[in-house]
Design a protein around this nucleic acid. Structure first.
Lengths: 348, 348
DNA sequence: AACGATAAAGTTATCGTTAACTTCAATTAC
DNA sequence: GTAATTGAAGTTAACGATAACTTTATCGTT
């Protein structure tokens, strides 16, 4: 399999115009060394030939990629696509390209992607860890090597790491308190696994609220699982095996709520008449036209902006101390249509 | 801003072990030149040092990246994330890495991403064009340069291009015929713009079905717009300005259907009692528990697999002729829960 | 007229890896 | 016992671009 790709190089241009390679390189980068006349001549010709700089050669030589690596666990929900959009926006604004990789909530994929991004010598890394990430060794290595790294949403806690996340504990607490204020007392929680900060913190917030209002914490109504639709479906089914049903369920994510709704349909239960649902995070729409699917709103845009901000600080000053930022959640009652506005990229 | 990243290189390993750089390179790549004993010694040491090969250097030297570039218009819906997953799966299986970029349905972003991917010297390109892509010059240039390129779903038609798409015309026709068979006669269509094959073909299918069943084609009930929620919302609102309402609406995408549902909620209309909806494409769930949201199912997995297959054929044989593949759609009545199964990546 | 300053190039070395050869010793073949 | 083969390395020269110098001509100063 021979490759005979006729990719134009600086050399091709240089030979044709009888100048040195460096002159061409400088001209195309608008270096002050080169006269305006020569620049124009070179640029025009490069354009005619359809020259594209070779990313690899440029990186190798300049030792920087102007690129940041982004790893998310999934893109099949509302949350991450929205977050990705705001991260792109912020990064592009600062003239960084983003390389996106998806771990599909698998620790091995995550590890592989990290290695790929490292091998691309990205200038920095943004990571929301997978549900199954327990071995943090690679992150400690990365930290030691000095590559800027900032976690977001699903984070590894510890003073040596930078991260931006939402106050999940308070968010869950807010949601439950809203339910209590509405008059509910018998509250269940479809929770995430304790291994991940989101599952841990949101469950703690649930417990906080119950205790604060002197309600018993219903251990057998706290069901741990994944953060996806399937977990919601299965969790709800499990919950319904008791003859004793809760009045309302707090789901750890919007995706889990979707699974609950589906399960309810399959069981012939009506929401909110038979059982009500409240969740943390929101979807593109209140998909069930159920006026009672309140949710805790996560400031996605702010999170995207902040996380890029922190990373770029780390890139520009490798000695910077780790930053931990915790954003406040907000309760949203009867939220309906959330429109994602179109994104504008700055011109290059 | 100095960079003092201590990235381990082959050289570091070579010096330490008193062998040549090439020996290290060969050992790590399992080249038969090197004895098993030496390989073990080198691999062990490289591992201890946490060596990661430099992607750029490797690419530059070997002139291949083992990477394919993927451009999609959006990831905020159900369709593209699912497709991306199956593309990843197929590509990884063939030992290719995927670099994903999102155009956010903007032609300029698309162009920029193409250039970036070209500059990375990806081995091939997979593209679903944006809604606003009209200038196909860059694709003609790419074609001329000989870089393998395959479109999918949203394609540029023409004998010189390869693509994999769904028979959108037949799909729309199927949907409308289903509606007609159910007893509906007054059918509207929230259509996509004619500039993109999806909008064009699906609208043609709508017309086909109406004509076939001797129903008048309701020109003022064909409303063109984007393929997203907002277009559905606005389109439905516009439709409702007539006092004369259709019995059922065919929406060009699932996202558009979501917008319609939201608008219906806002207008106090009940679905399917007041007005029914049918759509092309499906979501993670039938989100409205409306038994009547039938849809035309798109064979997403097959499409992902096929498009990777075609691309790899082109990569392995640069002289290969363009291939156009059109997959059959399938009507899905009262479809409910679609679970995305977890994805397994092959080990490297 | 001799000086340094500046503008507009060109030279050289290097980034980290791999492809294509070459070397050299040990083994095999006849 | 010598030539040919093989195994296990090493050498050299790219790949395409950039950083850091160096050169050369031109200009304004004193």
């Amino acid at each position: 399999m021979k490759r005979h790709r006729l990719q134009i190089t600086l050399n091709d241009i240089a030979k044709e115009l009888n100048v040195s390679v460096v002159t061409v390189s400088k001209a195309l980068r608008d270096h002050p060394d080169i006269s305006e006349r020569t620049k124009q001549r070179i640029k025009k010709f490069a354009n005619e030939l359809g020259y594209t700089p070779n990313f690899s050669a440029r990186n190798l030589s300049s030792r920087r990629s102007n690129t940041i690596g982004l790893i998310v666990p999934k893109i099949g929900n509302f949350f991450f696509p929205s977050l990705i959009k705001s991260i792109y926006k912020a990064a592009n604004f600062q003239n960084y390209d983003v390389i996106l990789m998806i771990s599909y909530d698998d620790a091995e994929n995550e590890n592989r992607h990290l290695k790929t991004l490292l091998s691309m010598r990205v200038d920095g890394l943004l990571v929301a860890i997978s549900e199954k990430t327990t071995d943090i060794q690679i992150y400690e290595t990365i930290k030691k090597t000095g590559i800027p790294l900032v976690f977001f949403d699903r984070v590894i806690e510890g003073p040596e790491f930078s991260y931006v996340k939402i106050d999940d504990r308070q968010g869950a607490c807010l949601a439950v308190e809203h339910a209590i204020n509405t008059g509910y007392k018998r509250i269940a929680h479809l929770a995430g696994f304790k291994e991940i900060n989101i599952g841990r913190d949101r469950c703690a917030g649930f417990v906080d609220a119950m205790k604060k209002h002197n309600l018993p914490v219903p251990e057998n109504w706290i069901i741990e699982g994944s953060l996806n639709e399937e977990a919601g479906y299965n969790g709800f089914m499990k919950l319904c095996q008791n003859k004793n049903l809760p009045e309302i369920i707090l789901t750890v994510t919007f995706s889990v709520a979707i699974g609950v709704f589906q399960a309810a349909i399959d069981l012939g239960l009506k929401i909110p008449e038979d059982i009500d649902v409240i969740c943390i995070g929101e979807g593109p729409i209140n998909p069930f036209a159920s006026p009672s699917l309140s949710c805790v709103y996560q400031p996605i845009d702010e999170m995207g902006t902040k996380v890029v901000e922190v990373l770029i600080r780390q890139i520009q000053n490798l000695a910077a101390v780790p930053e931990q930022i915790i954003l406040p959640p907000k309760l949203k009652v009867r939220e309906t249509f959330v429109r994602q506005d179109e994104m504008a990229f700055p011109k290059r």
